[in-house]
Structures are given as structure tokens and as C-alpha cells.
Design a protein around this nucleic acid. Structure first.
Lengths: 220, 220
DNA sequence: TATAGAAAAATTGTTGAACAATCTTGACAG
DNA sequence: CTGTCAAGATTGTTCAACAATTTTTCTATA
């Protein structure tokens, strides 16, 4: 893996670079992205950058105000609540209706194992990645490429919110065991119970994120 | 309402114009959209048109093959099946978990009434519109702007498939009464039953569409 | 005749400059 | 202090050009 991101058109590559900066926290929410400045920084033309902006705006990562510019999307209580509603619809339904021998179940299991190992090593960042992979695998149970793509956007947007929080990785840590439980129920042929557990998981996670967000949003 | 579509940037307006042509059937699936030709037809620059292409590609209405061009998305059995999977996840879950006094219920009712009236008048096109509105209202029960936006894309893509079929509006006609039943169950405080009925509805609709599609796809 | 391959043409990818339209800033008058 | 208006900066849009890639055309050869 020597190559960086040499795929497709320049706009796509640009979108990827900016997306990385976004989830890496290099670009702060609400920050304005000047066309001229960014174009010269990234050493591309304004036209190409604008195409990338259109891409990222459609993904919900940027906000485009005509004649005013594009800004990094700013997470809010409302957006976090909205995102968790989406997660409940997609994940719970996919899990509830899942075929217990679906290939994605294997990915769920490997994700749990990776998370366990990472937790032992104290590698919280990897715990977070494994957790995200676990939930992406759940959505994949529904066998729809459109749902997968949509969930990828939602997950990226949620990561934007996480980036604002202190100790973002720690948010995932408590849920490793819950994931294992959910997986066990599914493999035991009890998808309904697994879905119920997932619903509880999401409710708890949502409360935690909202609380942490409220703490930093209004320190008044 | 004299104004046509004077909102936002040129790329957005272009996207809307092309989207309209797409669902109106003026642009055929698989057809290549030449940048130079379309730009001169629509009397805009290639750059602006390219921005619009990026928008519509993200919506799933166009397909972008780097260095080869953009094409009108071509419906297939696989895409129809995928879309109906999405519909089941979004609509059934939203209905099942719905609060019976949610404002969207009113829109569901007016949609049913509009469909009934249109059917009496033999206005099948309006029956179709009312039917689409009914299902959009169902998704709105989940109270998520992201789900609403996603469903709008899915609906537009499905309409692309309908456009290929003979008597596309007739596809909606048989379902007016089923919608009324679903609404009645929801208003009677039985969301679970309503969701089950909707699931059956979608299964039947999917079969019909697939059968019609198969008939025109391989007339060998 | 068929076909592989090279040359030519057409199309997409990308850039830079230019100007119009709109927004932002800041000075100034009341 | 506040509202107005001009100046400056930024986005919106177009155009022309060239590079990179694909498609088409044509030819030489088996």
C-alpha cells in the first residue's frame, strides 16, 4: 500500500482528502472554507475544488450557503438526535430481519474480536474503529448497497460530532460487551431480542453523546 | 407561481431541470450525456454542467464513469430489488414505531383522499402522485430530515424504473384501497398490524414491478 | 476477409484568467 | 451610536486552452 489515493477524478480524490481532514479534526465545525485559499493550499484549480465541495455537501459533511461560501457542518443536538433516529431505523430493522447465517455476521464477529483485543491493549482508537465496523456490518445484513452507502454517510457525520468531544474514543469502550451480547443473541437465532438489545444500546449511546455535547456546547 | 426554478446556484437549478427531464422520460436510461452537447443545449458552461452532474450522480440518477462520461442510470432487476429493500426498512420501521397522532398522519389521510378522488375521475397520473405522497408521509413518521431526504432520492430513482414500464400510472391504481387500510390500522392504534400490511403491500408491488420489467427487458 | 495495431479524432479532465453578482467591511454623515 | 454608501473581497459563471484518455478510423499484415 504505497499509493495514497490515486483513484478516479481529481474531484473525488480532493473530496477524500478533505473528508480525512474533517474526521481528523483539522477542519473545525463551522469554519469557512475559502475557495481561493483552499485551492491554492491543495494546489488545484477553483473549479475542481468546487466539484469536490458539491460532493461533500451532498454527503452532509459540508454546508453550502449560496453566494456566501461553504462551511464545515456544525453538529448540534438536533443533528445528533436525527442521526440516532436514522441509526435506530436502519440498524434495528436490519438486525431484526436478519438471516443468522448471513455473511455479514462473520464480519460482526471479527469486529467484536478486534475490539476485545484492542481493549486489552488499551488501544482505544482501534476499539472505536472496530465498533464502527460492527455497526456497519449490522446494516449490511439488510443486503442493500444503497443502505450501506447511506449508512456510511451517517457514520461519517456522526464521527464529526465525536471529534468535538473530549476523549472521543472512550465513548466506544463501554459498548464492546454489549456488542458481543447482541452478536450472541443473533447467532442463537433470536434476532428480535438482539434488535431490542441494540435499541437499548443506541438509546444509551445517544444519551451519553448528547450529555457530553451539552457539556461542551454551553459551558455557561 | 410564474417563476420557473430560480432558486440557489446555477448548478442546483440545472440539476433540477435535468431531474425533471429524467422522470419525464425525455432522457432514456443508459443514454450518454455529452458535456459539450448538453452544455450548449442548456446554454451554460461546461463547468457549471459538471457541477450539476456531480449532484445528480450522488443522487443515484446518473452514473459517472471517469474519463468516459456520465450516463442516465439504467434500472435493473438488481436495483429494483435493492430499492424495495430500502423501502421495507424505512417505511415498515417508521410505521411500526409511529405515534398515531403524528402530524404526518394528516398528510397520509389527505393523500388517501386525493387518490380516491383522482381514481374516480380516472386521473391515473394524480393517483400515482398521491400514492407517492402517502409513502413519503409514512417515512416522515420517523421524524428525521435525513431519512426524508434519503427517501426522496430512492423515490426518484424508483420513478426512473416506472418510466420504462407501459402504463406506469396503472401500477399505483390497485393500491389505493390498501393504503386506506394501512391508514385505518394506524389510526386505530395498531401500528404493528399496519406495518405488517405495508410489508405485504411492498412485496406485492415489488413482484408486479419486477414482472413488468422482466417482460420489457428480455422480450426474446 | 478478418484482424491487430497505429494514427487521428473526439471527449473528458483540469487549469487559469476574466468578469459579473453578491456579500462584507469600514468610513462617514447625521 | 446608528444608518448609509462606497470600496474591497468572495463567490458565481463563463471562456479558452491544453493534457489525458477513450473512441473511431484506417491501414498493413496474416
Amino acid at each position: 500500500m504505497i499509493e495514497a489515493d490515486a483513484a478516479g477524478t481529481l474531484a473525488q480524490r480532493l473530496a477524500e482528502r478533505i473528508r480525512d481532514k474533517l474526521i481528523a479534526g483539522e477542519l473545525r465545525p463551522g469554519q469557512k472554507l475559502s475557495e481561493a485559499a483552499l485551492a491554492s493550499t491543495l494546489d488545484v484549480s477553483r473549479n475542481s475544488l468546487r466539484e469536490a465541495f458539491r460532493l461533500l455537501t451532498k454527503e452532509g459533511l459540508l454546508r453550502h450557503e449560496p453566494n456566501r461560501g461553504v462551511f464545515v457542518a456544525t453538529p448540534s443536538m438536533a443533528s445528533i438526535i436525527d442521526i440516532y433516529r436514522v441509526r435506530r431505523v436502519l440498524e434495528c430493522r436490519a438486525l431484526e430481519q436478519a438471516y443468522p447465517k448471513h455473511p455479514a455476521v462473520i464480519r460482526m464477529r471479527t469486529s467484536v474480536e478486534r475490539a476485545n483485543k484492542a481493549r486489552e491493549d488499551g488501544d482505544w482508537s482501534s476499539v472505536g474503529s472496530a465498533n464502527m465496523a460492527f455497526h456497519a456490518a449490522i446494516v449490511d445484513l439488510a443486503d442493500s448497497s444503497r443502505l450501506n452507502a447511506f449508512y456510511a454517510h451517517i457514520a461519517a457525520e456522526l464521527r464529526l460530532s465525536f471529534g468535538l468531544l473530549p476523549d472521543p474514543e472512550m465513548l466506544h469502550a463501554p459498548y464492546v460487551d454489549l456488542n458481543a451480547n447482541i452478536l450472541a443473541m443473533l447467532e442463537a437465532g433470536k434476532p428480535k431480542e438482539a434488535a431490542a438489545a441494540l435499541d437499548a444500546y443506541l438509546a444509551q449511546s445517544e444519551r451519553t453523546v448528547l450529555a457530553a455535547f451539552a457539556r461542551i456546547a454551553e459551558p455557561a
